[in-house]
Each structure stands twice: as structure tokens, then as C-alpha cells.
């Protein structure tokens, strides 16, 4: 392919997306950046363009804000955990479901059903299910470990509350990984697989040396996209635990939400968002560079 794109392609590939993003997002984004350098909240009674610029104080404050830092580390742990588990589960499932089998269409439809429900609904469902009067304790756990199950109060301890959030996320988003992996795996040419089989390769070798390398780009995409979403998790914590007990399950998105909306401290929230943005950019850039470009 010629290195320079033909003009029409260049326009098609850059104009629409530029128009869209610029028209819709650039100005609000610019406003947000400006807000981060102000000391302003609507309750101060002045317009935001009249508010005094305070430079980096908001950022300095964020660095010293224990609640922010803890929320950050907690959210990171959360993200890494769910993305890893969802990835392996999704990949395994996609691999298992590759061939034809009885009821495949229905099975896949059911598998991706969790994606159809709004996250708030999923959060509500798990909230009800994990209560002390709910089925998790009274039906499932009781069958496994007997009466002790009734004394488990999921939302009372930080660790168990955290686990409920993990479970809700994994339940809802494994299908996302599954979808991408399934589509990617089914595009691996049968010829190559058959050739390897003829040569005596085990299923495992085929998987590891034939399929996986071919779908690597999509794996990276899936991991990055899911990672970004998981990091922004808000609904599950908000509805299931309220950030509690105390603030021990407060995700960084939830803290920013509270700061912006409940405490109307929009400048500070903007500053925190920008700091997170910077961090994420660095991490994702490194991630993509390592897997995408180093390989080339």
C-alpha cells in the first residue's frame, strides 16, 4: 500500500471523526480544564468565568487528599482484578463455544444477556441478592456451608463488600470479553488449524501458537477498552454499598461524583479528573506501545 493515503480516504478517515469530536467535546473539555485551575463552586454565587485562577492548588490538594489516593489505589486493584478475571473467563468461554453444538444460538444469546441490562439495574439486583435476607445467604450459601451462611453480612465488612462489587462487575462484563474473543477466534482460518492438527499438534499447542497470536491485536483492544470502563466504575459502588462501610468501597469515580455534584466542588473534581486522565494516558500509552508497536 502506498504510504500516503489517497485524498478521499484521508478525508473520510479524518474529517467526520474530527468534526464530531470537536463540535461536541472540545469546548466542554476545554471548559473542564479551565475549571481545574480555578477556585470555584456554583455555591460561591459568581460566574465561573469571573472566578479567580488559583493555579495548581487543586492539584496539590488532590495529592495530599488521603480519600482520593485510597480511592485511586482501590480502584486500580478493582480494575486489574476484574479485567484479568473477565479476560480469562471470556477467552475460555469463547474457545469452548467455538464449534457447533446443540442450542448454540440460544446459549450465546443468554451469555451476552448481562450486557443488555443497565448497570444500575444489575447493581440493584445484586444489592437485593446480597442482603442478609437475600438468596445468596439464605439459599445458595446455606446449602454449602449451613447455618453459618446466615451470619455473613456482605456489606458490613470492607473486604466482603468489595467482593460483591467484583462479582457484580464480572457477571455483567465477562460477556463483553466473550463477544470480542469469540468473534476474533472464529476468524482464525480453519485451514491453519487443520494443518496444525494434521501435524500432530495438541489442542493446547494450537491454541497457544496458532490462534492466540492471530487475535492478539483484538485482545489488546479488549483489555484496554474494558480496563478504561472498569476504572470508571460507579454504579455498583453507588447502589450496592454507598461507598461503605465508611468510604472503604468508594471508587475514584464515585468520589469525584460526590465532590462535583454533592459538594459542588467542581473545580476540585475537575482537577482530580485531569490527574486521573494524565495517569491513565501514561499507563495506556505504555501498554499499547509495549504490545502493539514493539511487536512490529
Amino acid at each position: 500500500m502506498p504510504e500516503k493515503p489517497p485524498r478521499e480516504i484521508k478525508y473520510l478517515a479524518t474529517l467526520p471523526v474530527n468534526i464530531l469530536l470537536n463540535a461536541v467535546l472540545i469546548i466542554p473539555f476545554a471548559i473542564m480544564i479551565y475549571l481545574a485551575f480555578l477556585k470555584w463552586s456554583p455555591a460561591m454565587g459568581m460566574n465561573w468565568w469571573e472566578a479567580p485562577i488559583t493555579g495548581l492548588t487543586n492539584f496539590a490538594r488532590a495529592l495530599g487528599d488521603a480519600r482520593f489516593i485510597t480511592a485511586l489505589s482501590r480502584t486500580t486493584i478493582y480494575t486489574v482484578s476484574v479485567v484479568t478475571i473477565e479476560f480469562f473467563l471470556g477467552l475460555a468461554l469463547a474457545y469452548i463455544m467455538l464449534g457447533d453444538f446443540v442450542g448454540k444460538k440460544a446459549a450465546i444469546a443468554i451469555t451476552i444477556y448481562p450486557l443488555m441490562l443497565p448497570p444500575v439495574v444489575v447493581a440493584t439486583i445484586f444489592y437485593l441478592m446480597f442482603q442478609s435476607y437475600g438468596p445468596v445467604n439464605n439459599l445458595f450459601l446455606r446449602a454449602i456451608i449451613g447455618e453459618d451462611a446466615l451470619r455473613i453480612y456482605w456489606f458490613l465488612k470492607p473486604d466482603t463488600a468489595f467482593i460483591t462489587l467484583l462479582i457484580a462487575d464480572i457477571w455483567q462484563w465477562t460477556p463483553f470479553m466473550f463477544l470480542i474473543m469469540y468473534s476474533a477466534l472464529s476468524a482464525v482460518p480453519k485451514r491453519l488449524v487443520e494443518a496444525a492438527e494434521v501435524l500432530g499438534a495438541s489442542s493446547f499447542t494450537i491454541f497457544w501458537k496458532v490462534r492466540l497470536p492471530l487475535i492478539k491485536p483484538l485482545i489488546i483492544v479488549a483489555l484496554v477498552l474494558r480496563g478504561l470502563e472498569a476504572f470508571k466504575m460507579f454504579d455498583y459502588a453507588f447502589i450496592m454499598t454507598g461507598g461503605g462501610p465508611g468510604t472503604t468501597t468508594e471508587t475514584v469515580s464515585m468520589y469525584i461524583y460526590r465532590t462535583a455534584i454533592l459538594y459542588t466542588d467542581i473545580s476540585y473534581a475537575a482537577a482530580m479528573s485531569l490527574m486521573i486522565l494524565a495517569m491513565i494516558i501514561v499507563v495506556v500509552r505504555a501498554f499499547i506501545w509495549y504490545f502493539f508497536e514493539k511487536g512490529r
Binding site: 469546548i27 466542554p28 473539555f29 471548559i31 473542564m32 475549571l35 477498552l225 478504561l228 470502563e229 470508571k232 460507579f234 475514584v252 469515580s253 469525584i256 461524583y257 465532590t259 462535583a260 455534584i261 467542581i266 473534581a269 475537575a270 482530580m272 479528573s273 486521573i276 486522565l277 491513565i280 494516558i281 495506556v284
Partner: peptide, 11 residues
């Protein structure tokens, strides 16, 4: 996709 939506809402 990287921004927590809460701050973006007001702008």
C-alpha cells in the same frame, strides 16, 4: 472514554 463522567457533566 478515560474521563470519569461526573466532572464532564457540568461543562
Amino acid at each position: 472514554r478515560m474521563l470519569p463522567p461526573a466532572t464532564f457533566v457540568t461543562p
